[in-house]
C-alpha cells in the first residue's frame, strides 16, 4: 500500500471525527478534578438533584429546609467532576494490514478514534500492540501514520501486560484472528475499565472466501504453510468455523461488558460510520 493511501485513510478518519464522536455515555470516569462531569453524584459545587435519604447517607447533605417544610429527609446531590482519559490499543499484527481494504479501514478507524478522543478532551493514550509487547505512541500525527502501521508478525495475543489506566475509556481495535479462548485475552480489557469498546475490522475474503482450487496457504503471522485440497465441504466448514470464532468473541464481550462492533472493510466509509457506536456513533454538532 502506498504512503499516500495510508495518509489519506488517516485523514478520512480524522475528518469523520468532526461529525461522529466515539460513544461515551456511561462509565465511572476517572476522578481527579477534571473539567468533565460524570453522571454519578460527586463532590462538586454544581447542584445535580434531590433524592430521598437512606440510612447511612452523609447527614451534612440533608436539605434541612425541605425537612422543615415537609418533614421528609431529602438529600441534595451534586455533580461529580471527573477527568476522563482514553486508552487506545491498536492490534499491530500483520493480519490487520495484509489485505488492502482491511488495512485502509483499520487506519480510517484509528484516525477516527484518535480524532474523536482528542476532540472530546479524553487525553488519549495510543498504544500499538506488537509481538510480546506494546509500543506507546507519544505524539501521533498524520505523517507518522504510515510508519507505524506496517504490521508486525504477531502469533499470539496477551492484554494482561498492557498498562491500562483505571476507569479509563478503553478502545481496542483488532481483528481478533488469534487462536485460543477470547475470554482470556479480553478479561484485562474489561477489568477496571470505565467503558470498553472493541472494534473488529474484517474482510469478506476472510469471512466468506471464494477459493476455487487446491492451494498452499501461508499464515501471514507465523509464515507456516499448509496445503489444502479444496472442496465445497471444506469451504462450508471453514465459514462455519470463522462464524463461531466471531460469535465466541462477541459473546465474551457481552459477558465482560465490552461493546463489540464488527466493521466491514468492503463497505464505504460513509456507510460504516453511523453504525460504529452502541446504537450508532454519537453525532457531534
Amino acid at each position: 500500500m502506498l504512503h499516500e493511501e495510508k495518509q489519506n485513510a488517516w485523514r478520512r478518519g480524522w475528518v469523520a471525527s468532526q461529525n461522529y464522536a466515539l460513544p461515551r455515555r456511561r462509565g465511572p470516569w476517572r476522578k481527579g478534578g477534571g473539567g468533565d462531569r460524570n453522571r454519578v453524584s460527586g463532590q462538586s459545587l454544581d447542584f445535580n438533584d434531590h433524592r430521598p435519604y437512606v440510612q447511612g447517607d452523609d447527614m451534612r447533605l440533608v436539605n434541612w429546609r425541605v425537612y422543615a417544610a415537609t418533614g421528609q429527609m431529602v438529600l441534595k446531590t451534586f455533580e461529580e467532576e471527573v477527568s476522563p482519559c482514553a486508552d487506545i490499543l491498536i492490534d499491530g499484527s500483520q493480519s490487520m494490514f495484509y489485505v488492502e481494504e482491511k488495512a485502509i479501514r483499520s487506519i480510517e478507524m484509528i484516525g477516527w478514534i484518535v480524532g474523536s478522543c482528542q476532540r472530546q478532551g479524553l487525553r488519549p493514550n495510543l498504544m500499538v500492540m506488537k509481538n510480546h509487547g506494546v509500543e506507546n505512541v507519544e505524539f501521533f500525527s498524520e505523517e507518522q501514520c504510515p510508519n507505524i502501521f506496517n504490521g508486525v508478525a504477531c502469533s499470539s495475543i496477551d492484554l494482561s501486560h498492557i498498562p491500562w489506566r483505571r476507569n479509563s475509556l478503553r478502545v481496542f481495535l483488532s481483528d481478533l484472528l488469534y487462536p485460543g479462548d477470547p475470554l482470556e485475552w479480553l478479561r484485562p480489557l474489561a477489568k477496571g475499565a470505565g467503558l470498553a469498546w472493541l472494534y473488529c475490522p474484517y474482510d469478506e475474503s476472510e469471512s466468506n472466501p471464494e477459493w476455487s482450487d487446491d492451494m498452499e496457504m501461508e499464515d501471514v503471522e507465523s509464515g507456516n504453510k499448509r496445503r489444502i485440497s479444496l472442496s465445497s465441504d471444506l469451504l462450508k466448514r471453514y465459514r462455519l468455523a470463522y462464524e463461531r470464532h466471531t460469535e465466541e468473541a462477541e459473546s465474551t464481550c457481552t459477558r465482560l461488558g465490552v461493546f463489540f462492533n464488527r466493521v466491514n472493510s468492503q463497505l464505504p466509509w460513509s456507510k460504516v460510520l453511523p453504525s460504529l457506536g452502541e446504537d450508532g456513533a454519537q453525532w457531534v454538532n
Binding site: Y98, L177, Y178, P179, M215, M217, E218, D219, V220
Partner: peptide, 10 residues
C-alpha cells in the same frame, strides 16, 4: 499450487 496468504490458518 496456487499460494495464498491468509490470517486465519489457525
Amino acid at each position: 499450487l496456487h499460494k495464498k496468504l491468509i490470517g486465519t490458518l489457525f
